[in-house]
């Protein structure tokens, strides 16, 4: 049974590269362009991991985490935040909200795959 990962980032090209890498490794991938879009796409289907950028228009990553934690069907879904070294305050906020996994940007697809597979193997 394939595991599904949602990738949330306002950069379409990043989503594309990450998507190709994850699909190549055997995951199913759902793409969302920001927090709002992500919440809209969390509709009933099983999602094993959400990988989300922090800074996005419409709804940022931290808010997304807080919102996801309110959804009965997704409240225990692991969330990995993508952030830059300088955003340590965001990291603390995100962690407090319940996103325990973090990956520092910029990263290469293999690094992301490695991090993802610690939480969910395909």
């Amino acid at each position: 049974m394939g595991k599904t990962i949602m990738i949330v980032d306002d950069s379409a090209s990043l989503r594309q590269v990450v998507g190709i890498a994850l699909k190549g490794a055997g995951y199913d991938v759902i793409e969302a362009s920001d927090g709002k879009d992500a919440l809209a796409k969390l509709t009933g289907q099983k999602i094993h991991l959400i990988v989300s950028d922090v800074n996005m228009p419409n709804m940022d990553g931290i808010t997304l985490v807080q919102e996801v934690k309110k959804l009965p069907q997704y409240r225990f879904t692991p969330i990995m935040m993508l952030t830059t070294e300088t955003e340590s305050d965001k990291k603390a906020q995100g962690k407090a909200a319940g996103a325990k996994a973090w990956l520092v940007k910029p990263f290469q697809p293999p690094t992301l795959l490695d991090a993802v597979s610690k939480l969910v193997l395909p």
Partner: peptide, 17 residues
Amino acid sequence: ALRNGMDPLSFLRYLGS
């Protein structure tokens, strides 16, 4: 751990790799 989505089994599977 579980509530945060951190499933011990996931880490153990990865460790096995």
